[in-house]
């Protein structure tokens, strides 16, 4: 499902230097599998995720998610790719403060231009909130939710359009231990239930251990751990 082939990525560092975060990185992950990526700070974990989600461009190499190379897409197609194929979960929940929990979950449905069945969407959103344990908080705005609850809404939102790939960047980074574990369990459970390919970038080794495969990003290379 996911393939990286000799991918390189560097960032400017100082006046004339460049920092190489991915160096001829090749990697693959089967559809429906779960993987966690660990590594020291600044090793390029988030960069890898961004490349997989089409949020960034490699300096060299190719990436394939399904049959699509997200780095070669024009903006309109890239948006469609992110909409239909990928679901993002970030460390910061990035919920829209002006929308309720239910509305935040429904937000991805507004991204496309096509007509949608509003009732069906709403039913699914309720279902997702129920799955993440927030059925009774559907009408609450993010300001009235705890950090963990907000992150769970973000998970529900990421799943709204049934993505094939779920990319989670430090999803529990801002949460306390118990909440983080609960969220991690939820994440893997849902992923397994939907046969969604899950890639989690994390410092949390417990979370990392929940994945089927663990990779370490080291010297610009992904190495199975």
């Amino acid at each position: 499902m996911i393939e990286l082939d000799e991918v390189c990525k560097t960032y400017p560092s100082g006046e004339n230097d460049r920092l190489e975060v991915l160096r001829n990185c090749s990697w693959s992950l089967k559809a429906g599998a779960t993987a966690s990526v660990v590594g020291p700070s600044g090793s390029g974990k988030s960069t890898l995720l961004h490349l997989l989600g089409g949020l960034d461009q490699p300096d060299a190499g190719t990436i394939k998610v399904g049959e699509v190379d997200p780095t070669q897409l024009k903006e309109k197609d890239a948006a469609a790719f992110r909409r239909d194929t990928v679901g993002f979960i970030f460390q910061a929940h990035h919920l829209l403060p002006q929308l309720t929990a239910l509305e935040n979950v429904l937000l991805p449905t507004l991204a496309g231009m096509g007509k949608r069945d509003l009732a069906q969407d709403e039913a699914r959103a309720h279902e997702l909130l129920k799955r993440v344990g927030l059925a009774e908080r559907a009408s609450h705005e993010p300001g009235r939710l705890s950090g963990g609850e907000r992150q769970r809404v973000a998970v529900a939102r990421a799943l709204m359009l049934e993505p094939k790939v779920l990319l989670a960047d430090e999803p529990t980074g801002a949460l306390d231990g118990r909440t983080a574990r609960a969220l991690a369990d939820l994440l893997f459970e849902i992923s397994a239930g939907n046969a969604t390919t899950l890639v989690v970038v994390t410092h949390d080794l417990t979370l990392a251990g929940s994945a089927q495969r663990i990779f370490r990003l080291q010297d610009g290379q992904l190495v199975a751990s």
Partner: peptide, 9 residues
């Protein structure tokens, strides 16, 4: 976030 969700610019 909206762009990451797939909203076109």
């Amino acid at each position: 976030m909206m762009r990451a969700m797939g909203f076109e610019f």
